[in-house]
């Protein structure tokens, strides 16, 4: 514990308050105008561009079908808001099931991928042995095969395992595109952690595994959370495997279920589609905001937990 704090700075006692408000230290000498130009204006611009499509989707989801096609007055506002589409989505489709399936698959496959890639990332970034380079390279190279065709041979494997129409088909295949990604991501983070920290622990009699579990992994928490975020999001949005491997409406995931049941031939039901898009993303975004906060504070937390 003492050792870990000392890694942040030679003087843990002094470090405490500074870590807590590091960037505020900078802000002391700033005037509001400086901060506005440096932070608020670019931030607002980014927010506007990022959020406009969401505003549009939200507005669309409250419009009746005929108002949707009416551009004679401002399309940016809704005159007669209706909850019809949300109601329809939640009661007449299997959306709640899809949401549950999507969350289940995303969480389990993310956990599996993280378990594998934390170990693999540590091994490839930290340990020296014959073939590490080529294995790291090999893990990555498989990534270069585009999924637009990879799904065909993969269906053989799924068939042989009798996993068609089963959420396990997704839980087991999603790691194939999550692991290479997370492993490499974490390799980057493990490399960023000074080697001396672990060597010091080894000198103090810790085993290699202890050094990994107690020093390297806690220090890489921001990286692990970032990897988790990506993995979760990629699974949450995955479309192709979910389309191919699942058949029954009750086992489908959001992206596939929504498009299959809300797009009828050449007529789109925009209100419902957009309602589904929002319901499928905003709760996750809220969840994320807590996670991001946690890992932005990750270093401080990691140092304290030691």
């Amino acid at each position: 514990m003492a050792m870990q704090s000392s890694t942040r700075s030679g003087q843990p006692a002094v470090l405490g308050p500074r870590v807590r408000k590091p960037r505020n230290g900078r802000a002391i000498g700033d005037r509001f105008v400086g901060r506005a130009i440096r932070i608020y204006i670019p931030l607002l611009a980014l927010l506007a561009v990022t959020l406009f499509p969401f505003y549009w989707m939200a507005i669309t989801s409250f419009k009746s079908a005929s108002e949707l096609f009416d551009f004679s007055v401002s399309p940016l506002w809704v005159r007669e808001p209706t909850l019809f589409w949300y109601q329809d989505l939640l009661t007449k489709t299997n959306f709640p099931h899809w949401a549950f399936n999507t969350a289940l698959v995303a969480i389990v496959s993310t956990l599996i991928s993280l378990f594998c890639s934390v170990l693999a990332g540590y091994s490839l970034a930290r340990l020296r042995y014959r073939g590490a380079d080529s294995i790291g390279w090999g893990i990555f190279v498989t990534y270069l095969v585009p999924p637009t065709l990879l799904f065909l041979p993969l269906t053989f494997v799924i068939r042989e395992l009798h996993l068609f129409n089963n959420l396990w088909s997704l839980i087991l295949t999603y790691p194939t595109f999550l692991i290479p990604f997370c492993t490499w991501m974490l390799m980057g983070f493990f490399k960023g952690i000074p080697r001396e920290l672990e060597e010091a622990a080894l000198v103090d009699g810790a085993t290699r595994i202890q050094a990994m579990l107690r020093i390297a992994i806690p220090l890489a928490v921001p990286g692990i959370l970032a990897a988790a975020l990506f993995a979760f999001t990629l699974s949450w949005n995955e479309f192709l495997y979910s389309l191919i491997f699942l058949n029954d409406s009750l086992v489908k995931t959001i992206p596939v279920g929504v498009t299959q049941e809300l797009i009828h031939g050449d007529e789109f039901f925009w209100g419902e589609l957009m309602a589904a898009a929002l319901l499928g993303s905003v709760p996750v975004a809220v969840l994320y905001s807590f996670f991001v906060d946690y890992f932005v504070a990750g270093m401080t937390a990691g140092a304290v937990k030691g």
């Binding site: 927010l47 990022t50 992206p255 898009a277 499928g280 993303s281 975004a285 809220v286």
Partner: peptide, 15 residues
Amino acid sequence: RAALLLPYIIPTVLS
């Protein structure tokens, strides 16, 4: 932070 992440979270087929 959550808002800026939204584009990445929303299911791509829909966005």
